[in-house]
Design a protein around this nucleic acid. Sequence first.
DNA 1: ACAGACTACCTATGTTCATAGTTAGTTGGC
DNA 2: GCCAACTAACTATGAACATAGGTAGTCTGT
Lengths: 200, 200
Amino acid sequence: MSLRFALLAMLTSQPMTGYDVYKNFETSVGYVWHAPDSQIYPELRRMEQDGLIRGETVPWGRKGTKKRYEITVDGVAAFRAWLNEPPQYTRERDPLRLRAAYLEWAEPDAGRQFFRDHIDYHGGRIRDWEDMIRTLRDHTNPTLARRLEGQPEDEWQRIVEYKVFAYEGLIERARAEVAWAERGLALVDRLEGAERPASS
Amino acid sequence: MSLRFALLAMLTSQPMTGYDVYKNFETSVGYVWHAPDSQIYPELRRMEQDGLIRGETVPWGRKGTKKRYEITVDGVAAFRAWLNEPPQYTRERDPLRLRAAYLEWAEPDAGRQFFRDHIDYHGGRIRDWEDMIRTLRDHTNPTLARRLEGQPEDEWQRIVEYKVFAYEGLIERARAEVAWAERGLALVDRLEGAERPASS
DNA sequence: ACAGACTACCTATGTTCATAGTTAGTTGGC
DNA sequence: GCCAACTAACTATGAACATAGGTAGTCTGT
């Protein structure tokens, strides 16, 4: 059900086509939510049926057309209602931690590689999110810029700060992952002294 | 595909029925992986077809029977292969961070409640995982105890340490979430000075 | 003028997972 | 002797998501 609200969130900044949404999920916004186009187009149609958004066919080039959706009053109300209701936490399902718990069955080098990959992956995400925060703070983020256009200037701070804060949360969590994986490398070295083979 | 390996992981400690697996997912092991029984029974049948586990019908009471599965040599090999191959990281999809990024649309009190819920939820998980670590360290965890029975004593340390370390990772991440949510409470107080209503 | 990249939208298929049931036997307490 | 709780296993349905295609039009550089 979150896809629907991710789409509403995007459409609160400006009207967009399904393709625009897809592109945003592929790049910047994709740092916090992602969906393939095969999920986006049908969901937009359902949302239009439910009156949350309104589609308008606009010309594109000489013969082409595209469908631009804008959020409706009902859509804004639904988005607000979602934000005001308590979130539900889903059950734990952590394939990486599952692996880590059984590393005594793996080759020591596979264990080391696992933690190095973990550090690389989360290090990369941290850099992405730090860049994102920079573009939010200096208002060079295009989606943010278009959002701010429609808002009074004394609201700008609130809008920016909540978004920056969300990305800071992702960064804090990723830093915890990196710190953990670094301890993991040391653990493998400690447990797998020299020649020890994988457990039987 | 991870469910399959979660099941193999459990069956490396001892033979189990589908119901045993289900009960474990509901309680202790559920702290790291969870699945409903409607997913477990069919997957066990598929795994038996693929030769990863072997099912044996055993009597239960006077008329009842149950099917106990044990892991096969092929199953152990498949589990090892999974652990040795590099994990694949899935795309970001974080409904809670999505919410947090748009809290300027919510009621201030809903924002505060959001962060308090976040602290409560992750605080609870931390306590669960800390208890789990205690039962791993003192070998009172029944699943661990049965696993150690089948292993030479000089392997015990490795087996326990990797499991403890996995839970420590969950705890570190959850602590980052709590710290973030505490900063979030302060942020709401700072941005929503007194009477300010939700943004338009 | 045309190839190649991009925009725009769509469909099909299969997996994973949640939710909500059903059936049948067992065990323990009163 | 019977009820409640538990053990054991199964089925049906729908949402969410991944993967992999397809069609048609547009734009840009050479």
